[in-house]
Design a protein around this nucleic acid. Sequence first.
DNA 1: AACCCTCTTGACTGATCGTTCAACAGGCGA
DNA 2: TCGCCTGTTGAACGATCAGTCAAGAGGGTT
Lengths: 203, 203
Amino acid sequence: MSAPIPNTADRIVFAAMTLFGEKGYGSTSVADILREADANSGSLYHVFPTKQDVLIAVLRRYTEGIEPMLLAPAFAGVADPIERIFALLGFYRQALTITDCLYGCPIGSLALEIHEPDPPVRELLAANFTAWVAAVEACLDAAGDRLPAGTDRHGLAQLVLSVMEGGVMQARTHRDLAGFDAGVAALRHYFTLLQTMAQGEAA
Amino acid sequence: MSAPIPNTADRIVFAAMTLFGEKGYGSTSVADILREADANSGSLYHVFPTKQDVLIAVLRRYTEGIEPMLLAPAFAGVADPIERIFALLGFYRQALTITDCLYGCPIGSLALEIHEPDPPVRELLAANFTAWVAAVEACLDAAGDRLPAGTDRHGLAQLVLSVMEGGVMQARTHRDLAGFDAGVAALRHYFTLLQTMAQGEAA
DNA sequence: AACCCTCTTGACTGATCGTTCAACAGGCGA
DNA sequence: TCGCCTGTTGAACGATCAGTCAAGAGGGTT
């Protein structure tokens, strides 16, 4: 378990992940990636046919990282499934706080930046959203009959994603967390009403 | 009222508005704009010091266009203030439908693409969001006591913006309206619950 | 006519872009 | 020791980028 020395390919992917998150895909040059990864262009093109293949590797790593890097830390110490959803939202809030409202969700940024993405890129972006929504939906399932019977849990999970992405967008644009917080507060209120409804059903 | 012949500056702004919406700011070259506007580089740089000033002009035009180009047509024939909000969301849905889920909200796309925008750009993006939220908030105000007393109308309007932007993002990424529709349906349900609450208060 | 001013033309610049490639380094099996 | 393979080096390439500029067109004023 000693610290593994990252090989060139891993350093490149990590550097690209950082830079794509900070500056976006189009505004990050291959030269930027090489500088950040301390590598040469030949090494990059020995592993990745094109810059887009670096993006694909980055998106794959994001997909793999959802569970260990995002859900696990966000859910740590939170047992209640509905509170887990808000803990997840709190995780993004923290990222915004730390970076002065600059860094939000890299998948959302890339999804809107890449306007006509090649099929593999679009599918990976979609897969990231799907996995995120599935994680929230699993929390809703775990909440069992605390939600009204017949609740569209998948649709509700998609609403949670919209609240997160829309909140990040507003926070970044206004350099102010208010828009993010307002969305989360309204969502919280909606969940309260849903749980009240479910209690009424039980009686 | 005969059709005015657009001058070069207007043609450039219109071309840039189209292209920034289709391909984004970074992926649109000045040469693209000149081709679309049928103009020469000297003409553009005679009017606009830099490419960013073209973006600023585009964002100004978007701000001016919110009322006549967005709200007026979306609200046409819809008197009920709460239905107006959903008519506005329907307007974006229509844009997604027409363009096969490619074209969403240009302001949202630009807001996430421009990562460290110069102050004037960021302020114009923020002004667009502010005006949009204010329009929704005005509908909520017009709904009067159909919403519970003490409702945070500004925060609720920000939620509506998040639902729109998050829905557009999901629709574009999945090339499928389902994520957009699910968010709107959940929002509709939340509004129904709020109105039920308000009726209970009245009794 | 002479002058001025606004706007247009389009070739041009230097920088930067993504990408290529011949040369080379080092470990490993024969 | 030899060849082989994986991976590295960094100069170089053509394309494209945002931006420049000297020249001129066209209309209004004197």
